[in-house]
Design a protein around this nucleic acid. Structure first.
Lengths: 144, 144
DNA sequence: ACGCTGGGTTCGCTTGACGAACCGTGCACA
DNA sequence: TGTGCACGGTTCGTCAAGCGAACCCAGCGT
């Protein structure tokens, strides 16, 4: 659903507060036609909403704002950003630090279980489809 | 980098312990040619490694295992899975619950700041490129 | 010698991404 | 009253990527 080339990038910009077509285009460098298409499908999927706005002394236009469904993708986007900051540092794009509004401390994303333990990675996790056993794949020792 | 259509799907299966070409192809339904291509580029990007194995009474073959770089994408994949379980439930694919190995409690992904506060969403976060101010976009009230 | 299996490659077609050019509405200014 | 401009698109032709079906090859068991 977010597998098309620009979808996640558009959402990332949306999370950073970019809402206008031209700003998105500038920020991403995507061709207009593709951006139009991607925005339309994000709207169709109810990840973005097209809302009218008007600047002082300008005609009415539309901007694209996150819906609840779209906002809920925030962790996924942050996870990818953190990965990029960790592994792709120095590729031209400076890392982006996220700070908790008010408290000012850096924000990070972590996996933890209901008992409060931090989870380090896929090895510490067992996946079961809705409680039942997963059929006999090679799944007993994941992710090595 | 993970924007090609199947990359994240391949990684998801990898996190679930699927390592073999044929199993990946069965699980994903991707055409062989595309899967080959995707696996090669994931290997080239050092997200997967191609390691030899041999089953009893079979010839030596290769399987694809996550590298550290690849394993580090786990939070991103989990985030997308949780999003899917929340918003796409009932679309045929049953949700997958992740349990902490040993403790048995369900695992979930959360955003929190260094002071220990849970962060609810993009509104509670201020993004700054490596500490400096972001240029005058429309970024003062993000993600509405 | 033969066939089976896993892991591919090749082929022809369709779909998507791309940049450049064009369009149309409505404001500002002359 | 007309001209220019900016935003937000659409259209067009080209080129890359995704697709299913068919084919291929190494090596094992029989």
């Amino acid at each position: 659903m977010v597998g098309e080339k620009w979808s996640l990038l558009v959402l990332r910009e949306a999370f950073l507060g970019v809402r206008r077509f031209a700003d998105l285009q500038r920020a991403l460098g995507a061709p207009k036609a593709v951006l139009t298409d991607r925005l339309n499908s994000l709207v169709a999927q109810d990840l973005l909403a097209r809302v009218p706005y008007r600047d002082e002394g300008a005609r009415q236009r539309h901007e694209y704002r996150l819906t609840e469904r779209g906002r809920d993708l925030y962790p996924a986007v942050v996870a990818l950003m953190q990965w990029g900051d960790r592994w792709l540092a120095g590729d031209g794009v400076p890392p982006l630090t996220l700070e908790h509004r008010g408290c000012g401390e850096p924000v990070s994303l972590g996996l933890r279980c209901a008992a409060g333990h931090d989870v380090g990675g896929p090895r510490e996790v067992v996946a079961t489809p809705s409680g039942r056993e997963r059929a006999g794949e090679t799944a007993d020792t994941p992710a090595g």
